[in-house]
């Protein structure tokens, strides 16, 4: 997978440098890791693997009871066309795991709806608190993100003045981000850094 994509990128760079007539190919080294700005449905593997498995049938979006799963047009490149994504600030994942049950092609694996299973196999991202924005860090006791979390004291804990601290158990469902009172939100889900498809 990785080899194929690297090969293709090299091919692309070769063509680009030839057509531009630029000899400065040394600086044009492809960077494989870019930050993703969206979440994939729960349980999916690395982005490259997901793209080989997803057949774009749209069933995960049909079964999602929270209308959290949406589909890309061309805004994220041709690779991501018609693939499912979740923007938790709009609609978060409620970890019902039904998309995994309906997915025919194994792109979203089946994960039982149990805390241990979900914690072990779901890694949509990790919540990150922005202490500049967070009300609790400004002395206004809030704690909404903690109360929205389905894995309290496993994914997030609160200290003095309900100041949140994200723990290792966070699976990135985004219910905290959705519930944050601040605008813009003081807690965000960041997807894991990984190789993404070229746009």
């Amino acid at each position: 997978m990785h080899k194929r994509r690297t090969f293709l990128q090299m091919l692309g760079y070769a063509v680009a440098s030839l057509s531009m007539g630029a000899a400065d190919t040394a600086t044009a080294a492809p960077t494989a890791t870019r930050a993703m700005r969206y979440l994939r449905p729960p349980g999916t593997g690395p982005e490259g693997q997901f793209l080989t498995q997803c057949i774009r049938c749209g069933q995960c979006g049909q079964i999602c009871p929270n209308q959290a799963i949406r589909y890309f047009g061309l805004e994220n490149g041709i690779y991501a066309l018609d693939t499912p994504y979740i923007i938790p600030r709009e609609q978060p994942c409620i970890l019902c795991m039904q998309c995994g049950e309906v997915c025919p092609s194994g792109a979203i694996p089946r994960v039982a709806r149990e805390a241990e299973e979900i914690m072990a196999r779901v890694q949509m991202g990790k919540a990150v608190v922005d202490e500049q924005l967070c009300l609790s860090f400004q002395g206004k006791t809030c704690g909404v993100c903690y109360r929205a979390c389905p894995l309290q004291n496993i994914a997030i804990k609160v200290g003095l003045l309900e100041q949140p601290a994200v723990l290792d158990g966070c699976v990135g469902c985004g219910l905290c981000e959705r519930s944050c009172l601040q605008m813009p939100q003081a807690i965000r889900i960041f997807p894991p850094k990984q190789e993404t498809a070229p746009v």
């Binding site: 997978m1 194929r4 490259g48 080989t52 997803c54 749209g58 979006g61 589909y71 498809a197």
Partner: peptide, 23 residues
């Protein structure tokens, strides 16, 4: 195979019709 993604889903009319109605 080369791109590592199911390209048919972008050019196959029946799936396009079904998906666009859903969208």
């Amino acid at each position: 195979t080369v791109l590592g993604t199911v390209v048919f889903s972008a050019i196959y009319p029946p799936v396009i019709v079904g998906r666009e109605i859903q969208y």
